[in-house]
Amino acid sequence: MTEGKLSLQRIMLVEDEEDIRAVAELALEAVGGFTLKTCASGQVALDQLAEFRPQLVLLDVMMPVMDGPSTLHAIRQTDEFADVPAIFMTAKVQPDEVSQYLAEGAVAVIPKPFDPMTLSDRIREIWDSLQ
């Protein structure tokens, strides 16, 4: 996908915890001004990809059934979203784990817990570094 220097607007969040989805909506929509699509599972995310057309995907790592890395793997299998930048969000941030996630094709890892007031800034930073 070649979005070029487009500014970031549409973000998809894949997260099984309802509380975190709710707080992320606040952090990214109300505070950050993004358009957010939240998905409660990897499968839902895959179903929604074509319709929502995210510019960036945020993935929780530890989820039941289909975890973050598996979801990303499945997204990479699609033709249209094979290159969509993905960020993992995880409570595990050992250095070796981070490099492992990056190796799996994520552009960055955001440690949990995140601060809802600064999450948007962090994501913009990451986005800008990609452009």
Binding site: E17, D19, I20, V23, M62, M89, T90, A91, K92, K112, P113, F114, D115, P116
Partner: peptide, 23 residues
Amino acid sequence: QSLHRLAGSAGTFGYDRLGKSAR
């Protein structure tokens, strides 16, 4: 898994100490 979830989420809601203990 439950502790892992708390470790990752409690801090976001301002319960830093709970998050750390759960971790």
